[in-house]
Design a protein around this nucleic acid. Structure first.
Lengths: 125, 125
DNA sequence: CTGATAATGATAATACAATATCATATTAGC
DNA sequence: GCTAATATGATATTGTATTATCATTATCAG
């Protein structure tokens, strides 16, 4: 049976409160407050557990390890800051006429958009 | 000085003629016709060379190694078939009003779209 | 044609994220 | 509180893509 450990609580909490997708190391760092001494193996283990439980979902990124965000959000896309390398959540604005761009016979199941740029915090510096 | 070898010609040719982005192993396979005995190390070396020369460009994909396509194409996006795992090039159709979706202070430099689905060839089977 | 040297192929080495191992600690049903 | 079983932390191991090594081959300027 699944146990309720302080580490697991801290990890779930960190991801849910982040407001943006976190990588494994970011999760580790963000969870250290609530769970001092937390190890990276536990982070990976619990990410897997939380994924299976449907509590969080994976954000796959080109060329780098996946990040994780709270599950159940509305359809949205992501923004990656080239400076700090943080990934932010973008609301709304989606693709218009995908069908027109598709070759005949191709079926679409999903899509993802990644916007590159510099975030507000990094722009100031 | 840069030499003109049959291997390099074969590799450039394979990428330019593919019509879709190829991964390193796909490049190897596609180049074997023109350059029998070609080794994977040479493929990687020449991909690097061709990238620096601006002859090809990299297509980064979430969770898998990059593919490479001929450089200088118009802005476009990509489609990945879940069955055969090939990546295809999509023309036209782009994002509408990105600005509205952006938080204040964020600057955009580029974006990429990846469409997931099943290609025509795999749909038939 | 020939020599200097860039390029190649086979394979060892590297880099890195993620997983497995294992001794110890923690949880929760009784 | 006690005990069986899950969870943890430290670290070794794995898996995979890419790069380095090095002896040999091929290119091309003169």
């Amino acid at each position: 049976m699944q146990r309720d450990t302080s580490q697991r609580r801290a990890i779930r909490r960190a991801i849910e409160d982040a407001g943006r997708p976190l990588g494994a190391l970011e999760v580790l760092k963000a969870s250290k407050g609530l769970a001092p001494g937390l190890g990276i193996a536990t982070v990976y283990r619990n990410i897997k557990t939380l994924l299976k439980a449907g509590d969080i979902s994976e954000v796959a990124l080109p060329g780098e390890p996946p990040r994780y965000e709270a599950a159940g959000k509305d359809h949205h896309h992501h923004f990656r800051c080239a400076r700090c390398e943080k990934v932010y959540e973008l609301g709304g604005a989606c693709l218009p006429d995908l069908k027109n761009a598709l070759p005949r016979g191709f079926r679409v199941t999903s899509h993802e958009v990644l916007v590159h740029g510099v975030c507000a915090a990094c722009s100031k510096k």
